[in-house]
Simulated assay, not measured.
Amino acid sequence: MLSTFPFQIAHLPPPTPPERQLAIFADVGGLEEYYALFLHHGFGGTAESWVEHIETIIEEHQPELLDEIEFEEGGHTFVAYAPSQAVADQFLACVLPFFGTLPQLQKYLSQTDPDDFFA
């Protein structure tokens, strides 16, 4: 299986609503190098910042996916919910080219204007 880093996927136990069958999450608080990279480029590096950037990436590359994914904000963990494994796989295919490694994130953040983001 291919790496999903920095994300993990977990099936949620019943009863769960149909749109929240899987959780896609990343321990933003524990990814210090990611956090430092966000800060270096003028972004917050918090879970809210991750949501904002990931929503932007999806909107630019696969906007229909935004109708399938539900984001949760707050805390030290990025969390998105998906209704199926297929949607979770689409999420990863869209986002990992930008978040999968520090060099990929570095390239993405270096091309992004902090003034276009709130977090």
Rank of each mutant, 00 (worst) to 15 (best):
H40L: 15
E32N: 08
M1P: 12
E19W: 07
E55H: 08
F91W: 02
T101V: 07
P18C: 04
Q104F: 07
A26K: 04
F98W: 13
L65F: 02
E19V: 00
G45Y: 01
F38R: 03
F5I: 08
G74A: 04
L109P: 02
P63K: 07
I58P: 06
I69K: 04
I57M: 06
F71A: 11
T77E: 13
F7W: 04
H40F: 10
L37I: 12
L105S: 06
L37V: 13
L12M: 14
E19Q: 10
H76Q: 12
F117R: 02
P15F: 13
H76L: 15
H40T: 15
P15H: 13
T77K: 12
E19H: 11
L37H: 05
T46V: 03
T77H: 00
L39T: 12
F43R: 08
V28D: 06
P14F: 07
Q106V: 08
A80F: 06
S84N: 12
F99A: 11
P17Q: 11
A47F: 02
F43M: 00
A36M: 09
A88D: 01
F25S: 11
E48I: 04
T16W: 00
F38E: 06
L92D: 06
Q104A: 14
Q62A: 06
G74C: 01
E70K: 15
T56M: 12
L102I: 14
D116W: 08
F98C: 12
A23K: 00
L105Y: 07
F7K: 03
A119T: 14
E70S: 14
G75I: 08
H61D: 15
F91M: 00
F118A: 04
A26E: 10
I69N: 03
E59T: 12
L22H: 07
L39C: 05
F91E: 07
A26V: 02
F71Q: 04
E48K: 09
A93T: 10
I57W: 11
F5W: 14
V51R: 06
D113M: 09
H61L: 11
V51L: 04
P14G: 01
L39D: 05
L105E: 02
L96Q: 08
L96T: 13
A80G: 05
Y108M: 10
Y34N: 08
L109Y: 05
A82G: 03
A23M: 09
Y108F: 15
Y35P: 02
P18F: 07
P6C: 11
I69D: 09
I9E: 03
D113P: 00
D67R: 14
I57Y: 05
Y108I: 06
E55P: 05
S49T: 08
P15Q: 02
H11M: 02
P83I: 01
P14M: 04
L92A: 02
P17E: 13
P13M: 06
E73C: 10
E59W: 02
V95G: 04
A36H: 14
Y34S: 03
T77D: 11
T112H: 09
V87G: 04
G75W: 03
L22Y: 13
I9R: 05
E68R: 13
T56V: 13
I69S: 03
P103F: 10
T56G: 11
C94S: 09
S84A: 09
L31Y: 10
Q21K: 01
Q62I: 05
P18Y: 08
G45A: 05
F117H: 10
E70Y: 07
V95L: 12
T112M: 07
V79A: 00
P83A: 07
V79S: 07
S49Y: 04
D116P: 09
L37W: 13
S3R: 03
